[in-house]
Design a protein around this nucleic acid. Structure first.
Length: 326
DNA sequence: CGTATTTGACCCGCGC
DNA sequence: GCGCGGGTCAAATACG
C-alpha cells in the first residue's frame, strides 16, 4: 500500500476529478442560467465557470423523459435527435459499443422545484409538519459501464431502492464530510442501460478531498479509482472504471482535435466559444486510449486563470498547450 | 476492530 | 382514507 501511496502525487489525485472521467459534451438548461446550475459547476470544481457556456441550446435539444421517473422530472438530452433540424452536439446512437468515452448531459431541475413550490403554495399542507426543504438538484446522464462515477468527493451509500418499471436499482449516496449534506442518486437508465443517471442535490461546503487534501485520501475508497496516467506508475485500481477519462466542454467544434471528435460529436458550429480537452488513460483496456491530451480553450481568460488557480488545468495540461481564446 | 455496504422497515408526499 | 412510490434510517453484515 505504501508504494501505491507514494505515487499518488498531488497531480495524480487532482487528475481524478470529475472532469477527468466524464466527457461533458453538452450542458443544457431550461431558460435562463440559474443559480443552481452555477452551483453544479461549483460542485464540479469550477465555481465561477463562465456562464456563457449556457448558451442557448434548448432549441436544438429534445426533452427526454425517463419512463421510470416522475413526470415532473424531465431530462434534457441532446443525443436523441428526433427533430430533423437538430444540431445536437452528439449522437448517442453513433457511439461505438466499445466507445467508453462518457457522455454527460446536465439537467437543471430548478424548474421542477419551482413548480413544486408553487403547488405547495396553492395547495395547503395537510399537516403542520414543516415540509422538508430540498436543495437544488442537477441530473446528468453519463454513458458509462460503472454506476458510481468518481467525482473527486467521498460518498457513503445509505440506501438502495428498486425503481419502478426498471430492472436497475437506484443508489443513494451522501457526502462523507460531516458538515456537508450533499446527496446524490445514481441509477441506470431503463431505456438505455449504458447510460447512468446521476442526480446531485445540494452544494458541497468543502473542497474536494481528492483535490485539496491529497494525503487524506490515501486510505479512502475513492483513492481506488484514481486513474493511472502517463508519467505515473500506479496502475489503475479499477480498469473498468477508468478506461477513458475525458474532459470536453465543447462549444467550438473547429477547435476540437479531429482525432477525438467524431462528426457525431460535433457541437453546433454556431457556438463560438468554449474549449475542449481530452484525456485518455493509455493503460486502460480501452481501444480508444491512445491520445494523451489535447489543448483546452477558454472563452473567457478569467475562466482559464480560475482553472489554473484550482489546479485543474496546469497539472494536467502543459502550459504550452493552454491557449487563451477570446 | 473500524468502516463501508446491504437491506428491510419506516416515513412522507401524492394521487385516487 | 388508502395505496403506491420515493427517500431515509438503522441494524445486520461484509470487508480490509
Amino acid at each position: 500500500m505504501e508504494s501505491k501511496e507514494a505515487v499518488k502525487t498531488e497531480d495524480s489525485i487532482r487528475s481524478s476529478s470529475f472532469f477527468d472521467q466524464f466527457s461533458v459534451v453538452g450542458m443544457f438548461e431550461f431558460g435562463e442560467k440559474s443559480s443552481s446550475s452555477l452551483g453544479f459547476m461549483e460542485l464540479l470544481g469550477i465555481p465561477d465557470f463562465n456562464p456563457s457556456i449556457f448558451d442557448i441550446l434548448q432549441a436544438s435539444t429534445t426533452p427526454y423523459v425517463e419512463p421510470t421517473r416522475s413526470t415532473s422530472e424531465v431530462l434534457m438530452m441532446n443525443n436523441q435527435p428526433t427533430t430533423p433540424n437538430s444540431s445536437s452536439i452528439s449522437s448517442e446512437s453513433s457511439v461505438a459499443p466499445n466507445d467508453e468515452q462518457s457522455r454527460v448531459v446536465v439537467v437543471d431541475e430548478e424548474d421542477e422545484e419551482s413548480i413544486k413550490t408553487k403547488k405547495q403554495l396553492l395547495k395547503p399542507k395537510k399537516t403542520s409538519q414543516k415540509k422538508r426543504e430540498r436543495e437544488p438538484r442537477f441530473a446528468f446522464m453519463t454513458k458509462s459501464e460503472v454506476d458510481h462515477l468518481e467525482d473527486g468527493y467521498r460518498w457513503r451509500k445509505y440506501g438502495q431502492k428498486a425503481v419502478k418499471n426498471s430492472p436497475f436499482p437506484r443508489g443513494y449516496y451522501r457526502c462523507t464530510t460531516v458538515t456537508c449534506n450533499v446527496k446524490k442518486r445514481v441509477e441506470r437508465s431503463f431505456s438505455d442501460p449504458t447510460i447512468v443517471v446521476t442526480t446531485y442535490e445540494g452544494k458541497h461546503t468543502h473542497p474536494s478531498p481528492l483535490v485539496h487534501r491529497p494525503t487524506a485520501i490515501s486510505t479512502s475508497t475513492s483513492a481506488a479509482f484514481i486513474p493511472a496516467r502517463p508519467g505515473f506508475s500506479a496502475p489503475s485500481a479499477n480498469a473498468n472504471t477508468n478506461t477513458a477519462f475525458a474532459l470536453s466542454l465543447c462549444r467550438c467544434h473547429h477547435h476540437h482535435p479531429s482525432q477525438f471528435i467524431s462528426n457525431n460529436n460535433l457541437p453546433p458550429p454556431h457556438l463560438n466559444c468554449g474549449y475542449l480537452s481530452n484525456y485518455l488513460n493509455p493503460t486502460s483496456t480501452s481501444t480508444n486510449a491512445s491520445v494523451l491530451l489535447h489543448g483546452r480553450r477558454f472563452c473567457n481568460p478569467a475562466s482559464s486563470a480560475l482553472l489554473a488557480d484550482h489546479g485543474l488545468l496546469q497539472d494536467i495540461v502543459p502550459s504550452s498547450l493552454v491557449t487563451k481564446h477570446d
